[in-house]
Design a protein around this nucleic acid. Structure first.
Length: 571
RNA sequence: GCAGGUGUAAUCUAGCGGUUAGGAUUUUAGCCUUCCAAGCUAAACACCCGGGUUCGAAUCCCGGCACCUGCACCA
């Protein structure tokens, strides 16, 4: 099996196919067909429920386009505004302005033509191999656009991740969450990166689907209440130590041995693992690898990738990062809006401290109009700065010596309700397209039969786009009618079915196997006699006969995992 | 973005200067069929796009696009 087989099936059966094919296609753009869309929605729904119902996160939906300031603050503009030249010999890319550092007073300000001219003028060659350099070109992974008409428009970008949409809404979210940490916010949406060379099918796309969760926590408390419940669960980890050694350890061990930085991060590694396995990632082909220090994103303090073993090798499908306070601090800095949270003490702490109290009645005659300013400066000063008989304060930017006789030092008591902190962020960020592809590749099994390859997609019932195939054993009216009734009943109970009365029964089973439909119901002549139908399970191809009025209840429990086929068969 | 390779129906492929562009799978209609891609009869669907060479191009040449492999890149 290779990725071409999977992609070929995806196209043939309507999961995923290259976009704009009638115009020759665009690398890095793929569309989801009917089955792919249904499956994608199933994965999203499972994820959404895990976070909102399971962990009490809230979901928002923010814009995909944003003004430049947002991405200046996030760091994305500067990370990708580089102008690059590439060596035509050894192919090493260099930042053009760096190469001109000694040759030009301000190379960072040059445009492409000027850079090329300067490089030619000074005969700059490749620092590595002396090879000739290519022309300079922009290297910016964000799609740039203009918000608003013409030259009056503001520079904007398509978001390279959904996360910023949560950070910029932090204050509104904090209010909504009644100003208490920790709280979590999720978002599902598209992100855009103008990749240099998209490859490997849907693994690197220019427009992609993400599911991101941002958990805001108290930086002084990265414990997690539910950690206790799962502390004995295990993770397969590759810590960032020399040798790339893989270790299996419990969450508890991982945190105690400081392999994983804190409980919350460890909990969400496990949470991610559970989700991935639930939607159909093979547990044997899943591990978590810690980012190397030099690999870490500009915002991350620690980061673990969930990696799936695909035909391309180990591939990142989820990143679980401790982003620290990077994002919020940057938005505070750039927007000048406070985004700190008051962590209240159990009861307000009464503290006594010394403050400077200006004697305005004496200062008036001395400092005249500036008396008020001087007084304010004194109030803001620390009594520790008093030097003998005077203190130096800053008034309108210049130091001013103020004599001791103009102020008193008094003790005041004040109540401090808590400490203001900028929350830290734990971010599980999921590449939905990659997860979906992983589910498809891990589900793909083929065996030889007389026709050639017989393909079964062993998709998880949760992800499978079609849940049940409903067939009359043969295309006869007396069988089609009752089968049609069962099909209708299932659909009206929220189970997506596929009704098929064409060709042979074997062909119809095969068709369902190839798109991963977990169960098939067949109405045969016995149904007409005793009202029973058969349920066939995809992976074992075994059948069990049940009363047709029980079909909905049985299938519903089979699909959600509260019943399993083996014990149903034993009954 | 660089180098090499490849583009024929939805899929796999034959054809390598002159073919009504062939086959298989698939799909559709009908017949047949009492549980795992059965059979029969019809039908549908293709030379990646644009130039050039030639009397004549799916076939040769050039450019573009896409895919594959390696390199680089992947915050």
């Amino acid at each position: 099996m290779n990725s071409a087989d999977v992609l070929s099936l995806c196209k043939r059966r309507g999961f995923i196919w290259p976009a704009y094919e009638i115009y020759g296609g665009i690398a890095g753009l793929y569309d989801y067909g009917p089955l792919g869309t249904a499956m994608k929605n199933n994965i999203i729904e499972a994820w959404r429920r895990a976070y909102t119902l399971g962990e009490g996160f809230v979901e928002i939906d923010s814009d995909t386009i944003g003004p430049e300031a947002v991405f200046k603050a996030s760091g994305h503009v500067d990370q990708f505004a580089d102008k690059l030249v590439t060596c035509t010999q050894c192919k090493t890319p260099f930042r053009a302005d760096h190469l001109l550092k000694d040759k030009h007073p301000n190379p960072g300000a040059l445009n492409f033509e000027e850079l090329d001219a300067e490089i030619a003028k000074h005969g700059v060659a490749c620092p590595d191999c002396e090879g000739e350099l290519s022309r300079s070109e922009e290297f910016n992974l964000m799609f740039k656009t203009t918000i608003g008409p013409g030259s009056a428009g503001r520079v904007g970008y398509l978001r390279p991740e959904t996360a910023q949409g949560i950070f910029v809404n932090f204050n509104s979210l904090l209010r909504y969450m009644r100003e208490r940490l920790p709280f979590g916010v999720i978002q599902v949406g598209r992100g855009y990166r103008n990749e240099i060379s998209p490859r490997q099918g849907v693994i690197r796309l220019r427009e992609f689907n993400m599911m991101e969760a941002e958990l805001f926590v108290d930086p002084n408390d990265k414990t997690w209440p539910r950690f206790r419940d799962v502390r004995h669960e295990t993770l397969r980890l590759v810590p960032n130590e020399p040798g790339d050694k893989e270790v299996v350890m419990s969450l508890e061990e991982a945190v105690e041995q400081r392999v994983v930085a804190n409980e919350t991060l460890a909990y969400f590694l496990w949470f991610t693992q559970r989700f991935l396995i639930m939607v159909g990632v093979d547990a044997e082909r899943l591990r978590f690898r810690q980012h190397l220090k030099n690999e870490m994103a500009h915002y991350a303090a620690d980061c673990w990738d969930a990696e799936a073993l695909l035909s391309f090798g180990w591939t990142e499908i989820v990143g679980v990062a401790d982003r620290g306070c990077w994002d919020l601090s940057r938005h505070i800095e750039f927007s000048k809006v406070d985004m700190s949270v008051l962590m209240r003490y159990d009861s307000p702490v009464e503290v006594e401290r010394e403050v400077i109290k200006p004697k305005f009645n004496l200062m008036g005659p001395e400092f005249k109009a500036k008396a008020k300013l001087v007084g304010n400066a004194l109030e803001e000063s620390d009594p520790k700065e008093i030097k003998g008989d005077h203190i130096v304060v800053l008034v309108e930017g210049s130091p001013l010596k103020v004599d001791r006789k103009y102020f008193d030092v008094v003790k005041v008591k004040e109540k401090v309700p808590g400490e203001r902190v900028v929350p830290h962020v734990i971010e599980p960020s999921h590449g939905l397209d990659r997860i979906m592809y992983t589910c498809l590749e891990h589900a793909y099994t083929e065996k030889q039969d007389k026709e050639g390859n017989y393909i079964v997609m062993r998709l998880s019932p949760i992800s499978a786009p079609i849940k049940v195939g409903v067939f009359p054993l043969m295309g006869k009216e007396e069988l089609i009618t009752p089968a049609g009734e069962i099909d209708w009943t299932l659909r009206m109970n929220g189970v997506l079915t596929s009704f098929d009365d064409s060709g042979s029964i074997g062909r119809r089973y095969a068709r369902m196997d190839e798109i991963g439909t977990p169960f098939c119901i067949t109405v045969d002549y016995q149904t007409l006699e005793d009202g029973t139908v058969t349920i066939r399970e995809r992976d074992s191809t075994e059948q069990v006969r049940v009363r047709k009025d029980e079909v909905v209840a049985i299938l519903t429990s089979l699909l959600c995992g509260s019943a399993d086929f083996v014990s149903l068969k034993a009954k």
